Simulated assay, not measured.
Amino acid sequence: MVLDDLYCGNIYPAEQVVPHEKEYRKLHRHTGELLTELEEKLSKEQMELVNQFHTHVIDVHCMELEAHFQHGFS
Rank of each mutant, 00 (worst) to 15 (best):
A14Y: 11
L35P: 01
E37P: 00
R25Y: 01
V60H: 11
Y7P: 08
M47W: 01
S74G: 14
Q46L: 03
D59F: 03
L35D: 01
N10W: 13
I11E: 05
S43K: 04
K22M: 04
H28I: 01
D4T: 12
H61S: 07
A14F: 08
P13N: 03
P13E: 04
H28D: 03
E64D: 10
Q52D: 11
E48L: 05
K41R: 13
Q70Y: 06
V17Q: 12
P19S: 15
C62H: 14
Q16P: 00
T36A: 13
G9M: 06
T31E: 14
A67L: 11
E64G: 04
Y7R: 13
L35G: 03
Y12E: 15
D5V: 08
E48K: 08
Y12Q: 15
L65Y: 13
M47G: 06
D59I: 02
I58P: 13
E40C: 07
R29D: 05
L34E: 03
K44W: 04
L27V: 01
H30R: 10
I11H: 05
G32N: 02
T55D: 13
R25N: 05
Q16H: 10
R25S: 06
V17W: 09
C8P: 08
V57L: 03
F69R: 15
Q16I: 08
E64H: 10
L42D: 01
M1V: 09
P19V: 06
M1P: 12
H71M: 14
E23P: 00
Q70I: 06
M63A: 12
Y7I: 12
R29A: 10
D4L: 12
F53W: 11
Y12V: 15
V50Y: 08
Y24P: 02
T36F: 04
P13I: 07
D59H: 11
E66D: 12
T36C: 08
F53K: 03
M47V: 01
Y7T: 12
K44E: 07
H61F: 07
P19D: 15
H61N: 09
S74C: 13
K22F: 00
E66P: 02
M47R: 09
I11K: 14
E33K: 02
K22W: 02
I11G: 07
V57C: 09
R25K: 09
Y24S: 00
L35E: 00
Q46D: 11
E39K: 15
H54Y: 11
R29C: 05
